[in-house]
Simulated assay, not measured.
Amino acid sequence: MNKSIHKGLRILLFLSIGIVILWWLYRDMNPDELLRIIKNDVGYGWIILSLILGLLSHISRTIRWQMLIEPVDKRPGVVNTFLAVMIGYLANLAIPRMGEISRCGVLSKYEQVSFSRLVGTVVTERVLDLIMLLLALALMIAVQYNVFVDFVNNKMDISGIVNFFSSWWFGLIVLFAAGAIIVFRQNILNSQMYFKLKGLWLKFKEGLFSYRNVKNKPLFFIHTLLIFVLYFLMIYVCFFGFPFTRELGPGAGLAVFVLGSFGMVAPVQGGIGPYHFMVISTLLFFGVGAPQAAAFALLVHGSLNGMIIITGLLSLVAIPLVNKSEQP
């Protein structure tokens, strides 16, 4: 019970932080101006296209997950796998990181696939997603290198950080930490924290290399790339739906996609708050006005999460009906 209360309080804490960030971002915004932009300045055909691209990315993720499951168990049906994926996304909106467990539980129930093996495939997925996000970040820096350097030089004051890492204080801290590790080495190796970190590393390592059992590796990597290409296009096509982002170009779209993705990684339901902060800050840097950037973040985030809520709820209703004939 205490563990459940602790978990619930942690979830509420992160949600509260996200709401506070959202309030802080929009506290000085004129609601009438935001509504005017959303009502009059948006080409909603582009938003609909964005949602279609989002659904295609979920289908691609479904196929990739099937390919990961097949070597460790039987290949599940595409319909059940897709519905489980969408239920997982819905669960993530309620409780961060719950979606990974939820979709494994749903697919295990309806396809009679080992739950623990499904969890192992999700670890693989998460490792691949992290690698792709880091590659997207590297591509963003390469494509927008001059902009990135200008941002660091003119918009960020990192002199304090540089001075700290070059100071004798930092050297003293490093020496003290190294000495403490040597003296308390045995205690560290026998600590519960060490075993937890070791377990996480082993899962990470297992997930990183488990793709080797996939039968069609070229197709598997095509879907891994396709998922992130569709994610990027899902954001970039929205640029054409707003007059103030239409001329920014794919480089700016890549920056909004990558930095917005880091906002979505935050342990807050649906990335509420952190996502808006990252997207608004990025658009401001590219010269978009504050009300326009705020409206863009609000509408894009709302539409994408609205699509997940609708498809997730429909999946919850559909999956028992789809499998009704197979139930005893």
Score class of each variant (00 low, 15 high):
K3G: 00
S4W: 14
I5W: 14
K7N: 06
I11S: 07
F14H: 08
G18V: 04
I19G: 01
I19P: 00
W24M: 00
M29K: 13
P31D: 07
L34H: 15
K39S: 11
N40G: 02
Y44D: 03
G45K: 14
G45D: 08
I47M: 12
S50Y: 12
L53S: 10
L53M: 13
L55E: 12
S57Q: 14
I59K: 02
S60L: 09
T62R: 04
G77Y: 07
V78P: 00
N80R: 14
F82L: 14
Y89C: 01
N92D: 03
A94F: 06
I95L: 15
R97G: 04
M98E: 09
M98L: 15
M98C: 07
G99D: 08
E100A: 03
G105N: 10
G105E: 07
Y110S: 01
E111F: 05
V113N: 00
S116W: 09
S116A: 15
R117Q: 11
V119F: 05
G120V: 00
V122C: 06
V123E: 00
L128C: 07
L130P: 04
A138P: 01
A138F: 14
L139G: 03
M140E: 04
I141E: 14
V143K: 10
V143F: 15
F151P: 00
N153F: 05
M156F: 13
M156S: 04
I158A: 15
F165V: 12
S167M: 09
W169A: 11
I173D: 05
V183P: 02
F184P: 06
I188H: 13
L189R: 15
N190W: 12
Q192L: 12
Q192Y: 12
Y194S: 05
K196D: 14
K198Y: 10
K198E: 13
G199M: 09
G199S: 10
L200P: 02
W201K: 06
L202W: 05
E206T: 00
L208Y: 01
K215W: 00
K217R: 13
K217F: 01
P218I: 04
L219P: 03
I222M: 10
I227M: 05
F228M: 11
V229H: 11
V229M: 13
I235F: 11
I235R: 12
Y236G: 00
V237Q: 11
F240Q: 10
F242V: 02
P243E: 13
T245L: 11
E247C: 12
G249P: 13
A252K: 10
V256F: 07
F257G: 05
L259I: 06
L259Q: 13
L259W: 08
G260L: 03
V265Y: 08
I272G: 05
F277I: 00
M278S: 12
T282M: 08
T282W: 09
L284I: 03
V288H: 11
G289V: 01
A290I: 09
V300T: 12
G302V: 04
L304W: 03
L304N: 06
M307T: 03
I310G: 06
I310H: 04
I310Q: 04
T311N: 13
G312N: 09
L314N: 09
I319A: 13
P320G: 08
L321F: 12
V322S: 04
P328Q: 07
